Computed example of a mutant assay.
Amino acid sequence: WQAKDGSKVTGTQVAVAPADKGAIPYQLVKANLAEGKGAMQGVSYIQRLATRGGVAPASDCTAQNKGARQVVMYQADYVFWTAN
C-alpha cells in the first residue's frame, strides 16, 4: 500500500476468512517496516473487511476469447493498525 505522502508498506498474509458468496475473502496482513515517513509509518497490521465482489469470472480462458477484457467490480474496507 502507498499513501499520497509517498510512504509505503508491504506485508505477509497471516489469516483469511470466507466472505459472502462472490466476494474475495477477508484478510489479515502483518506489515513489514514502512518505507518513507508518513501515514504508513508504524503500521503493524492491515485488515481487509466488508468485501464485495472481486472474484474472478468462472469462464475459461480459451483461444476464442483471447484478448477479451472482463471487468470485475470490487469494493473493500482496509483498516491499518498501529501500536501506541
Rank of each mutant, 00 (worst) to 15 (best):
N65Y: 05
A83H: 04
G6F: 00
G22N: 03
G6P: 01
I46G: 05
G67P: 00
V43P: 00
P18A: 13
D5W: 04
Q2D: 09
K30P: 00
A15T: 05
I24Y: 01
M73S: 11
G11V: 06
S44C: 10
A19W: 01
A17V: 08
F80P: 00
R69E: 15
L28N: 00
Q41R: 13
Y74Q: 13
I24C: 02
T62M: 03
V79M: 05
V55D: 08
Y26M: 03
K8P: 04
Q27C: 08
Q13S: 09
F80S: 02
Q2F: 06
C61E: 06
V9Q: 06
G42C: 10
R48T: 08
L28T: 09
N84V: 09
I24E: 00
Q27S: 05
V29R: 00
D20V: 09
A34S: 08
W1M: 15
T82Y: 11
A15Q: 09
I46M: 13
T82C: 05
A68D: 12
L33F: 05
Q41A: 12
W1T: 15
T12M: 11
P25G: 02
W81F: 08
I46Y: 05
A68Y: 10
P25V: 01
N84A: 14
Q47L: 14
F80Y: 09
A15F: 08
S59P: 02
Q75S: 07
G6A: 00
T51N: 12
A39D: 13
K37F: 14
L28R: 04
Q41W: 10
A76R: 02
R48G: 05
L28G: 01
A56M: 12
G36H: 04
P18L: 12
N84M: 14
T12R: 15
V72C: 02
P18D: 15
G11M: 03
N32L: 10
K4T: 11
A63Q: 01
Q2H: 02
N65E: 04
V29C: 00
V14I: 11
G67W: 03
A31P: 00
V71C: 04
V16M: 15
W81E: 08
S59E: 11
Q47G: 13
V43F: 00
Q47D: 08
V9T: 05
A19K: 03
Q27W: 01
G22E: 03
S7N: 09
V9A: 07
L49W: 10
Q13V: 13
D20R: 08
Q27G: 00
N32F: 07
